[in-house]
Structures are given as C-alpha cells and as structure tokens.
Design a protein around this nucleic acid. Structure first.
Length: 955
RNA sequence: GGCCCCGUGGCGGAAUUGGCAGACGCAGCGGACUUAAAAUCCGCUGGCCCGCAAGGGCCGUCCGGGUUCGAAUCCCGGCGGGGCCACCA
C-alpha cells in the first residue's frame, strides 16, 4: 500500500474539523483545566487578498503551527487563532478594480484564503476566527476609540485617565489652565514658565463652556485638530507619517504626498513616547525591531533656547545680555531646539522653517516679497522634491536679526527649507562650525563661521573645509557670567543649560521625533467614527449603546482620486444617504463624522478579541483576558506578559507594532487589560523569494512557464533573462500557489520543505523542484512502517537494541531542542538521519515507531496521524505527551577524540568516557599517525579538552 | 551619508560555548530494476596533487592583517550583498 497523501490529508483535515480537535478552552468552559499552563501563539493576520496565498505566505503560519502542536503535546493549553485584516486600501482597491462591493469581494477572498489555510493542515481554533470588517468586531474597535476620546494623559502620573477626572480636578480647583492650554497642578505654587513672568492661569469657573470644551479637547487622546497632514491626491486620502516613505511618497502605491493643513482626527500617541520607549526593555523582541522603534520615537536630549528678534534697523548688539531688556520692549521671541547647547557661542545665524508661524511677523518690509515667494515655492513642492534637492541649500534672508542670548551678538534670521516645521520648534540656531548642514548653508550664503570646539585629539582640523562634529573641548565660549572654555561637550551642555535656565532664557528639553497619529482616512472601506458633530461644530462621542455605527450601503464607494496637489480630500461617506448622515438627538440634528479609521485600527487589538471572540457584552471578557495574557515568567523580573509568541514579517516594525502597543497601553491604564505590553515575544520570519524572468523588452514573464536548458532560460522557446531574487508576487510574476504543491506532493511535504529551507528568520529562495526531497523522505518513512505490497504494519513488539535506543534518545533530544529554538531545518535533518537508520530494519520496534511518529507530528501532522492510527490508536495524537529522553542514554561509553598536532588534525582515538586527561593524551600518543607526526619533534605542551579534542603543541 | 545585519561546495544550508568545516537536502555522476521512461533503490560527490590500489599530502569558510595551543566563529582594515533611517538641529 503506497503512501497516498491525498486521501490521508483530506481524511485527517476532515476529522480535525469534525472533532474540533484544536478548539482551545477558556476559563469557565467545561473541562477547562486551570492547572495547565497556557501558551498564546499568534500569527500576524493576513489581508484577504484577491489572488489568494502564494507559498511565501504560510512560512510563518507553518512555523507557529509546529510550535502550537508541540506545546499541546507538552501539556500546554494552547491558543492558536487566525483571522482577517479586511478593512483598508487593498480590499477597497480590489473591489474598485472588479466593480464589486468590497463586502462581497472581502467575503469571497476570505472564503478562498480559509480554504487554502485549511488545506495546509494548520491547527487553528477556527471557532475564534473573525474579520475586522465584521460589525460584531468593529463595534468594539469603535468602543476602544471612544475610550481614547474619553481619556486624557496625566503627565504627572504618566498614564491615561478618564477625561471626567480631569474635568473634576479642574472644577475642584486642583488644576489651572495655563496660557497655551497647558495644565498646571495647583500643588506647584509659584509655577513660572519661561521668561520668569507670572503665568496667566485661569480657574475652571472663569472659562466659558466653549473654552472648557476646547480645553478638554486639547487633552483628549483622540482629538480633532488642524495640522499639517500628509495628503495623497492619487489615493484620495490623507496618510499617517508611518505610511509615508522616503519622506514624500505613499507606502502603498508610491504616489507623491503633500503637506496640507487640514482638520483631522488625531491620536495622542506622543503622550506615550517615553513609555513606548522604556517598555521595549520588557519585551523579548529582535533587537533590530526594537532599534527601529527607538529610532522612530527618536528621543533626543537638548535645550530650548529663546532668541529675541530685533528689526534690521535696531541696533541688536546694544541690547546687552538677552532677557533683561524684554520688559521695556518685548520683541518677538523665537525658541529653538538644539541638541548642542554647548555650541551656542558659535551660533552665527538663525533659520526658520518656511511654515514657521512667525515668518510673517519677523520679515521686514523690503524682504517681504522674496520671503513670500520662497515660502510659497516650498509649500508647493512635495517633501520628496525637497529631499531630492537636499544637496543644494536654498534660503532667503528675512531682514530681521536675533540676539544670541549668551553673548548678545546680533545674528541674521533666515528662512530655509532644510529646517522642518515638523521637528523641534521649526526654528534652529545655526552653528556652521559644528554642523555640516549649517556649514553648507553658511558657505552658500557667505555667513560667518566661528569655531567653538577644539578637537581633543591633536590633529589638523580646518573648520573652513567642513564642520567639526566630533568630540573636543570648548573655546571662545565665555561671557561675563559663564565660561565653557576647556569643558568637554557633556559638561559644557550641563553648564550652559543651567545658566540659561537660571536666566530664564532656556531650559533642558527632551524632544521626540514621534508625531501624533493622523487617524482619519477619506475611504469608504473602514470603520466609521462613533462621533457626531453638533450644529455648533462641537463633536460628541455616540453612546456606547448605539454601537456599532455600521457602514451605510452605498453603490458608489470609490475614493475621489486626483493628480492635482491642490485638490481637497473628499470622504466617500459624504455621498451616503441622508438618513445615515443625519442623526436627531432631542430635536437637534447632528451630522455623522464622514471620515473612516485607517487600516491599522482593526489590527491594533485583534489579538485581544481572539481570547473571547463571541463576547457580546465586552470587547474581551476579564477572566479570559487575565488568563491568556498573563505572564508565564515567574522569576520576579518585570516582564511584559501578553502573547507568548507573535510571528510575522519585519515590515510592521513601526506601523502595526507601535500602534498596537499604544492602544494596549491606553487600555492598560484604563484597567481594561492586565499587561503593559501586548506581545511579550516577537519573532520575524524571513521572506520566501523567487527568481523572476524578463524577456528582451525587460517585461516580466511568468516564472512558472520558464524552461531551463544548460544554465540558460527560455519562455515559449525564446531566451529570457533571470533577474535577481525577489519577493514573490504579482508584479514579478514569480508567485507559486500552495494549491499546486499540495496536489503534487501533499501538504506535509510542502510544510517540511518550507521549514527545511533554512533558518526561519532568514530570507530564502523558493525552488519547486527541491520539494521532492521532502516527499522522498516521507515515502521512505512510510515504507519503514508499512509494507507497500500488503499494507501490513512493519512493527514488532520487541524492544529496540541498545544501539538503536541510544540513537532514538539522541534524536529525541535533538528534535526537542531544535523545536524549542525554532530551528526546524535541523530538527527535520535529525529526523531524516534517524529514519535512514531505520531502513536497515525489517521491523520497527513499537517503542521506536511511536516515538518517531510523535516527533514528526508537529511538522508533518497528516502522515503522523495516519501512522499513529495504524499503530492501533483511535484518538488523534494531538494531545499525546511529547516523547522524553533518558539523559543516561545520551552518554557514550567511549568518546572519539580528534588529535591535532599544532592545530592540524593528525588522527582520531577512541577513549573510555571516564578516562582522565593523562590517559587520553597517552592514548593519543599511542595512535600510529599521531606518533609519526610527532616523530623527531619535542612536545612543548599538551592540550586536552574533555569530550572535545587533544592538541599537541610541538617545536 | 549614518546606523544595523550578512558573506561557508554547483545550489539551500549545518557546525547551539573559540575545538574534527561542509551534517541533511537539491542538483550532478556511476550502478541496480525496467523494452523504455518516470518513480524507487545503492554508491560517489569542496579544490588541487601523489598512487594501479589501499591510502596519503597540500590548500580551503569573501580578501588582508591580528589575538590564541587552536578562528567559519573574537578583534582591526578592506571588498561585496541586504535592511532601516535619511537635512530630526
């Protein structure tokens, strides 16, 4: 009886589904065993794409499936779910292309992908499956949005709190509202911000209701604000910073993106910058991903420094040390952020970003036309153009001067697009001697360059050839009150920052690159905001009882795309029926928010919904959440808890993974989840790549139709060129569907092949012809168990011989260790090697046969289940205990030692395992080859490394 | 330009801690079975050299240096490939 993988795989997939073999039990369920440890293993869920899966997709799914099956056999209560991230641009674009409603195409795509996933024998608990587009799901996405909307971030306590508590504190007089809307705790008596002037704090009862609303709005974690957003006309929507790549193109589609001031929904992720940074120390993630998040958050320490602006006609230098003169004629103050306050004495000019709010105010009349022209040009260009022109510095003089507060020097104020409004204060002090960008600019416009740092290492540093940005000690850095001369940078920074703070001219400042998250999209296929706008323009959250706010049915759901940068975003929901858009509340007509949430909203919390996927009363039940998310580590160290193993591609390093951490922390602060981090351990699998082929016009031809002859490649008889390896997909025409492979070789072979390709975290090249190797292995294994002629089981009840038993136990150890460290390629190699040992046997001892089947089962579950059944078991092996090994059997009676002479291998000896060093070296000396290599030489030193080798050092 | 990762046979890779380089698989070659092919099975397979053979020698983990009794592994300097960021003050 041959190995009929087709019938076997279909049969077992059917049985698993019928018997609900992989259903996970929650606390409170029948037969739930609280003594079992839990293991939550999660894949990044896919978009239900129209073309379905190619063989590159499931590499991570197969890996997690192996771990899930292995953990079940280890006695864990395993949660291994799957779902679909179905809102968003790809689904909508697919629907638009096919002229079918996205709900329909999404459903079809989900059905097809589910079929494909099931065909791979993945042990998901399908009962917990959902799509982010299900109203039962996005109801809770909207609910979480409302939690954000109804919360504020308490900076003093570094946590989110209900906005009602802020209102109470303000009303009770425990908190004052500062001039800029900053909250000032009443406890800080005599609080004085910059400038040393008494702050105009107002009490809550002194504010009008509109002002109160505005103050609250200013502190909500979800808020509307007019900000410079990334507007992508070609996609017809605005985008988050994280969705804009190369500083000026959309991540999706690679279209140009323009900065436009627009009123949009924002999420206050910046409030969490410090915690998002700090808590990376709690999680077990790949270092490169942590680094990318750190870089994205972009913490830097420096100082804010105030410069007073004077007009060109005023004699700036006569004003003396800054600050003291402000009382009589308070000129405009421009605050700059710098990470190099130690170089303040070398600041020879100042630059404002073209978008800086004070540009108009500081510009003198004779420069107004030039400045206006320059700013308009800068605004018209997309950021990518600005980046492309980065080589040459451009700028325009405002005619104004600023007073350098440390030395009273009057320095010119320029406008230049190399300063970004989006970072720091949008204004810089320029130190051309010690910053290469400032240096370039100063050269271009012939501005003075003053060196204030002397390189500590004696060497010729000519500041006229370029900026010196390295270490050194300060020179020419003293005024009547403070001197930095002779100090190294860290000390100089500290001294000058203290001096500035003492004079109320500046203060130390921690700055982040992270921006608030732009959360509106002008799309149809997304979660509607649970928000209503009143006739007075004030937004209110809808009542929780009214959730979900369902998407209206619409025939025309297309986004309004344009190639005109000046076009304005048009949400498709503006075309929704009146009865959806208008809502009556107590006789007042409210309008629904017409934007929708971005793609990322649904994936920010899906891992929580799996825990309790059918809960109609809460986004997740408290008990289920506490059980599945709890930390397994009991070593007393702080640990993130959360998902025990999260596997997915590295492309989500700063998008999904940062957003989800942010939402999770808000939910944590509000008491809705029990762990500070969502994903305790993260693993990035590599991509499967494949060769692509181009014809003589450079057009890609389908890789599956390529024939190879003598190292050359042909498509329909014509020679084609093999391109570099690339990610599988439509554009390179190099995708291979798993369906084909399953049909030819079976999915067990496919699973083994994908895992055998190499280390899980590396990119690997697909080669269809190589799959046969794993297929041969399974055939060989089958023949070791089953007589192909008669179908009889080739198993005996005799115990295995000592030698075989040792080999078995060594194999158990190898496979166990390898699976533990996700090294599936070597685990499979160990099984192949052991199986090759079995070929020589007429009959397999039952003990050996059962152990081999169990060891193989996580990787090739179908053939394993079939053999397990033939070995006489009626139940699935999914919950059979994982084979253990006997330490004693791993120890050999005799150990083989390689013997080296001066590090070169000269012979091998067999020595009793308990032999001492002396006996080992004597045995080595007794080896004829070693003896001849040593002949005539004097032994200088003998190195014996236990269980490793012997090395004679001779002269 | 900055930061990070990686370079091992014809190919994918193994070598978990500085200790026998090339496990395992693909491809290739030779053989068995077959009318034949596929499938399957057995053997060989890093390079160069000596030998009829058994066997033996030298070289070898991108290149050049270094540390060490000993380096694919650690350090320094190149070269090549990949990733992330990119006027972030």
């Amino acid at each position: 009886m041959k190995y009929d993988f087709g019938a076997i795989e279909a049969n077992w997939q059917h049985r698993w589904e019928a018997e609900r073999t992989f259903g996970a039990l929650n606390p409170g369920d029948d037969k739930f065993d609280p003594a079992q440890p839990k293991f939550y293993i999660l894949d990044m869920f896919p978009y239900p794409s129209g073309v379905g899966l190619h063989v590159g997709h499931p590499i991570g799914y197969i890996a997690t499936d192996i771990v899930a099956r292995y953990k079940r056999m280890q006695g864990f209560n395993v949660l291994h779910p799957m779902g679909y991230d179905a809102f968003g641009l790809p689904a909508e674009q697919f629907a638009v292309e096919h002229g079918v409603h996205p709900r329909i195409t999404t459903e079809q795509n989900i059905a097809n992908m589910t079929r494909q996933l099931k065909q791979l024998g993945l042990s998901y608990d399908w009962d917990r499956c959902f799509a982010t587009t299900d109203p039962d799901y996005y109801r809770w996405t909207q609910w979480i949005f409302l939690q954000l909307y109804h919360s504020w971030f308490d900076g003093a306590e570094q946590r989110a709190r209900p906005i009602s508590e802020l209102e109470q504190m303000l009303a009770a007089g425990n908190m004052f509202v500062g001039i800029g809307g900053d909250l000032v705790p009443a406890a800080v008596k005599g609080f004085e911000p910059l400038g040393g002037e008494p702050i105009g704090t107002r009490k809550w009862h002194e504010l009008s209701s509109e002002q109160r609303g505005a103050v609250l709005e200013d502190h909500r974690l979800a808020y509307m604000a007019e900000v410079d957003v990334n507007w992508c006309p070609a996609l017809g929507t605005v985008l988050a910073n994280e969705e804009v790549i190369n500083d000026g193109r959309s991540e999706r589609g690679n279209y140009p993106v323009y900065k436009r001031p627009l009123r949009q929904w924002m999420l206050r992720i910046t409030a969490y910058a410090e915690r998002l940074l700090d808590d990376l120390s709690l999680v077990d993630w790949p270092e490169p991903i942590k680094l990318m998040q750190r870089n994205w958050i972009g913490r830097s320490e420096g100082a804010m420094v105030d410069f007073t602006i004077t007009s060109a006609s005023a004699d700036g230098a006569s004003r003396g040390l800054g600050g003291s003169c402000r009382d009589d004629e308070p000129g405009d103050i421009v605050t700059v952020f710098t990470t190099r306050p130690d170089t303040l004495f070398g600041a020879t000019y100042m630059v404002l970003a073209p978008e800086h709010p004070l540009v108009d105010q500081v510009t003198i009349d004779t420069q107004r036309d030039a400045v206006g022209q320059y700013c308009r040009d800068a605004a018209r260009r997309s950021e990518i153009d600005r980046a492309a022109e980065a080589k040459t510095k451009t700028g325009v003089f405002t005619g104004a001067y600023a007073v350098n507060p440390v030395n009273g020097e009057s320095i010119p104020v320029w406008i230049a697009d190399y300063v970004m409004m989006s970072y720091g204060t949008g204004a810089i002090m320029a130190v051309p001697a010690h910053d290469h960008r400032d240096h370039d600019f100063a050269r271009t416009f012939d501005l003075p360059i003053i060196q204030v740092v002397e390189p500590s290492a004696a060497g010729d540093c000519d500041i006229r050839n370029g900026a010196y940005e390295g270490d050194g000690v300060n020179v020419r850095s003293a005024n009547a009150e403070v001197s930095l001369d002779g100090l190294a940078a860290p000390e100089a920074k500290r001294v000058i920052t203290e001096w500035l703070a003492g004079k109320a001219l500046g203060r130390g400042q921690v700055q982040y690159k992270l921006r608030d998250w732009l959360f509106s999209r002008q799309r149809y296929w997304g979660e509607p905001f649970p928000v209503l706008h009143g006739p007075d323009g004030v937004a209110i959250g809808v009542d929780e009882s009214e959730l979900p706010v369902e998407l209206p049915e619409m025939d025309d759901f297309k986004p309004t795309a344009s190639d005109d940068p000046d076009a304005l975003p048009q949400p498709p929901l503006a075309r929704a029926p009146d009865q959806w858009r208008r809502v009556d509340r107590d006789g007042v007509t409210f309008a629904r928010e017409l934007n929708t949430m971005p793609q990322w909203a649904g994936s920010c919390w899906y891992y929580l919904r799996y825990l309790d996927a059918h809960n109609a009363d809460r986004f997740v039940g408290k008990e289920a959440e506490a059980y599945w998310m709890s930390s397994r580590k009991k070593d007393g160290k702080p640990h993130a808890g959360g998902v025990d193993l999260y596997v997915g591609g590295a492309e989500h390093a700063v998008l999904h993974l940062l957003y989800a951490r942010f939402w999770h922390k808000v939910l944590y602060d509000l008491g809705h989840v029990s762990t500070p981090e969502p994903f305790g351990r993260l693993f990035n699998q590599g991509y499967i790549q494949a060769y692509a082929y181009t014809d003589d016009r450079g057009v890609y031809v389908p890789a599956e139709q390529i024939e190879e002859k003598g190292g050359r490649f042909f498509h329909q008889g014509r020679p084609v060129r093999q391109e570099k390896l690339g990610k599988m997909g439509k554009s390179l025409k190099n995708a291979v569907a798993p369906d084909e492979i399953c049909k030819h070789f079976g999915c067990d072979s496919l699973r083994l092949y994908e895992m055998y390709l190499g280390p899980l975290d590396q990119d690997k090249a697909w080669s269809t012809k190589d799959v046969v190797g794993q297929h041969r292995f399974l055939n060989r294994l089958w023949r070791n168990f089953v007589d192909v002629e008669t179908g009889k089981l080739l198993v005996s009840d005799d115990p295995p011989g000592d030698d075989l038993r040792k080999k078995l136990h060594r194999t158990i150890k190898r496979v166990t260790d390898d699976v533990e460290r996700l090294s599936f390629n070597t685990a499979i190699a160990a099984l192949i090697e052991f199986n090759n040992e079995l070929v020589a046997l007429d009959r397999l001892p039952r003990q050996v046969a059962e152990a081999v089947v169990l060891l193989l089962s996580p990787m090739a579950p179908h053939i394993a289940e079939e053999l397990w059944q033939r070995l006489g078991h009626d139940r699935s092996l999914a919950y059979e205990p994982w084979p253990g090994y006997d330490q004693d059997l791993l120890v050999e009676g005799q150990v083989e030692y390689p013997v080296q002479v001066n590090g070169k291998l000269r012979g091998k000896i067999l020595v009793a395992a308990d032999a001492d060093d002396e006996a080992i070296s004597q045995a080595a000396l007794g080896d004829p080859k070693v003896a001849s290599a040593l002949a005539g030489k004097s032994i200088h030193r003998v190195i014996v490394v236990k269980d490793r080798l012997v090395n004679f050092v001779v002269r």
